[in-house]
Every structure is written in C-alpha cells, then in structure tokens.
Design a protein around this nucleic acid. Structure first.
Length: 355
DNA sequence: TTCTCCCGCCATGCG
DNA sequence: CGCATGGCGGGAGAA
C-alpha cells in the first residue's frame, strides 16, 4: 500500500522519549522518595527540593507526602516543609489506627462476605496524631473539610485492613465502605481513583499486595504488614518479589509527558542521524540532573546506559542507594526496596511482639 | 473493551 | 494580588 513508517522499538536510541505510564506511577515516585530520604541524617524535607530531586511536578509531591503522612513516615512541619520520621513510626501509627478503627464501629461479626461496610459513624474530628504533644492547642474544628483528604482516605483504607477479618479487599468495596453509603455514582469513581493511588503507594512499599479474589478473578489487595517480608525477607536469596509494577531505575523522572490535548502531535520526523543526544524534552523545567541507578534492572532488560552524567550528585545518590545494598544482590528481588528490609524487619518484629 | 490512574486545571485558604 | 495546597475527573496507557 503506502509507505509504512516503522517506528523501531529502540526509538529511544534515536533520542526519542517514549512515554511510559508505569514509570510515572506514584508507586515508583514513592520508592524514589523513600530511597532519597530514608537516611539517618535526613530531617527536613523541602517540597521544592523533593520535586526537583525527583523530577516531578510539585503537585505529585503533595500526593506522596500526604499518603506517607497517614502512616507517620513524615510529618508536616510547616510551609513547604515536612520532617522525616522514618519507618520506626509506622508501628505506632498502625497501632493507633487499629485502635481507632476498632473503636469506631465494631460491626462485622456475622455476615462476613466479600464486601462489608464498616465506616466511621462519628462526626468527630478525624484523628489526633502525635499522641503526646506538650503544648498542643485545643483541637479546633478547623479540619472539617479534611474529610475528603487523601490523608484521611488513606488512613481509613489502612484501617480496613487492620480491623477487618478477611484480608482481601477490593477497591470497590473499600470505596463503598469509605463512602458512608450511596452506591454507585460519580463519587464512587472518584473515590476509586484515589484508592488506586493509595494502593499503588502501599503496594510499592510492600505494605499490601495486589492479588485476585479466588474465583471471581477480581483484583484485590491483601495486607502484608507484619509477616511475609519478615519471614522471607530474612534471606534475600530466597527471592520471591511479587514482581510489582515497580521497575523504574531512575530517581529523576524526566520522561516525555503524555500528550495533553492531542492534536499537534505530529510525529517528529525521524532523522537518520544516529546521535544519542540525551534528554531533549521537558518544556518548562530543566530538571535537576540526570542519573541512572546501576544495581538492578527491571526484568532481564538491561538498561545499562551509563555514559554521561550531568551532575556530580549522582555519586551522592548512588552512595546512599548502595548504603545497604548487599553485594550479592542481582535478582530482581533486590528491587528498589532492598535496603528497606532492615528497617522493615525492625518494626515487623516490634509489631509482632506487640501482638 | 474495561481497568488503571497520571496530569494538571482550578477551587480554596492564607498572607 | 500572589503563593501554597490539594480536590477532582478527563481521558490516555495497560491489560
């Protein structure tokens, strides 16, 4: 027929940036975020700094930070600033959430089915983190609108796992439950969208795992929490990383952007000049720099591309990345969270003991 | 097609 | 007014 323009699979080598939705996921972002700030010498986190370091828009940092805050990993310190609390805070937060969850609607003893509805019927203020805070001003009702915040939704989502007896929860059921009532509607869809975001974040941290309802085949999530990693994670050799959808290898995310409002997406003429120019995209933000992580690679695909390094910060990042990175790592299990294992095990033990 | 869920518009709150 | 936050849902990738 006509001339068929074949876009070779390695268009990337031609300098084109292939848009990949996965590499832009919140899960990957969070992984990078944690890897970047999970250090003992880290205390304050600047939103602008984070956005710059991770190469994403500010808006995304808000998402990440809000979700992480719901678990106590970070805490808002002030304008443009959050403080790193660390994984050590997770057990505390979880216990607190569990208590509150149990307290506020013990429902469920009979009629245990796929979807149960356990929601807080109290109109009281959300939750008061920071158990003991000295000069804590009286809890004002200035947070009435927080009812729809990602932070709260995230906490409630976690509560479902901690307080429910069945460990498989679908986002639909979660949305339904956390929505007080009312069945389907536009609200449901929106809620589910948010739950997808949250679920991805927690899944990337191995707090939960995506699976399927036995027979129905419906996607659902299972709480991993205390076990799983604590057991299997003890020996990294015995890999079994669920092969999440986390396979980003760069902390800086400066991949091409999704085409906005279509039109004007005239495919660039593919010049036949074999020039490996690096990033040429990014319209408004020059992005801090570009660096690549070495250790692991997605799934067999070798992405070894370490030639030009923009900043010297690469070394810094790489150093931190390999802080806990064992030498023998090479399976995909290592994943992005390899160095979290230690921290995880620590609090897993604590939780276990507490139980 | 349906399921996921990223992107960024724009409402809201605070100097 | 500008700036910081962060709902919200359109609609483009992924199965």
């Amino acid at each position: 027929m006509s001339s068929a323009i074949v876009v070779s699979q390695d268009a990337e080598s031609l300098g084109l940036q292939i848009y990949s939705r996965k590499e832009k996921s919140l899960g990957v972002l969070v992984s990078n975020f944690l890897r970047l700030y999970n250090r003992d010498d880290v205390d304050l986190i600047g939103l602008d700094d984070a956005a710059g370091q991770l190469g994403v828009e500010r808006r995304r940092i808000y998402d990440v930070v809000n979700i992480l805050e719901s678990i106590g990993i970070v805490a808002r310190r002030g304008k443009n600033q959050y403080s790193w609390k660390g994984f050590g805070e997770i057990p505390r937060s979880l216990n607190e959430l569990k208590e509150h969850g149990m307290r506020e609607r013990l429902g469920d003893s009979s009629t245990n089915n796929s979807d149960k509805v356990s929601n807080d019927g109290e109109r009281e203020e959300p939750l008061s983190l920071t158990p003991d805070d000295q000069e804590n001003s009286s809890s004002s009702k200035m947070d009435q609108k927080k009812e729809k915040s990602l932070w709260l939704l995230s906490q409630n989502f976690v509560k479902m796992f901690l307080c429910s007896d069945d460990d498989l929860i679908t986002l639909d059921s979660a949305a339904k439950a956390l929505l007080s009532d009312s069945q389907d509607s536009v609200h449901m869809r929106t809620k589910v969208r948010r739950l997808y975001d949250i679920a991805n974040v927690f899944a990337s941290m191995n707090l939960i795992e995506k699976t399927h309802i036995p027979v129905t085949r419906k996607p659902a999530y299972r709480w991993l929490g205390s076990k799983s990693i604590a057991e299997k994670g003890s020996s990294l050799f015995n890999s079994d990383e669920p092969k999440k959808r986390v396979f980003g290898t760069e902390i800086t995310n400066l991949r091409a952007k999704r085409n906005k409002t279509d039109c004007s997406s005239i495919r660039k003429q593919i010049g036949y000049k074999k020039h490996d120019q690096e990033n040429t995209e990014q319209e408004s933000k020059p992005a801090a720099s570009k660096y690549v992580f070495g250790p692991f690679s997605p799934t067999g695909a070798s992405k070894t591309n370490n030639n030009n390094v923009g900043k010297g910060r690469l070394l810094e990042i790489e150093a931190l990345a390999s802080t806990y990175q064992p030498q023998y790592c090479n399976h995909e299990i290592t994943g992005l969270l390899g160095h979290f294992t230690e921290a995880w095990k620590k609090w897993y033990a604590e939780v276990d003991r507490n139980k």
